[in-house]
Design a protein around this nucleic acid. Structure first.
Lengths: 71, 71
DNA sequence: CGTAATAGTGCGTTAAAATGCACTATTGAC
DNA sequence: GTCAATAGTGCATTTTAACGCACTATTACG
């Protein structure tokens, strides 16, 4: 998953839940400025930030071995 | 996936591939100090760091909606 | 035991993430 | 078009990730 995909997934999830950046910032405990920066593609968030956002959005970060059987 | 699990998964993968911290640092482009810090549970790595490690280990970071059907 | 390889830590520096505030840009409803 | 809600940006500050170096701790093997 490339960084840009990650952003799109999070934005899509946020939109689906009808949550604004401001609401998500409050819910997740991530600063609004940080969230704005991240969603606009400027950021390199820390694991902690990603997990906070995940918690608020009902999403989960996973780290798995790449499937090399599919091409 | 909690931070500690993430660490364990990465260490396990590294051990399975018989790669030392030093080798992984070189292969991934992540500083050795950074990797040591992370694996010893002291860190809060950035997305970029995690992706570098993932690339070197043949692993992938994903962000998905939590499955709430399972308990 | 010694010793070699590997992992973890203390200390310091540099670069950048996280943050708030104020502002501008965009979008959508009317 | 106006106006309101939301998103994005510029600037500054504080915190901390990333990093190297040197050291200590641990582990494995003879």
């Amino acid at each position: 998953m490339h960084p840009q995909q990650l952003i799109e997934i999070i934005k899509a999830r946020r939109d689906m839940l009808n949550v604004t950046q401001e609401m998500l910032a409050d819910l997740s405990g991530v600063g609004l400025r940080t969230l704005k920066q991240f969603e606009s593609g400027k950021g390199n968030p820390t694991l902690e930030t990603l997990q906070k956002l995940g918690n608020a959005l009902g999403m989960e970060l996973t780290f798995t071995v790449k499937d090399v059987t599919k091409k």
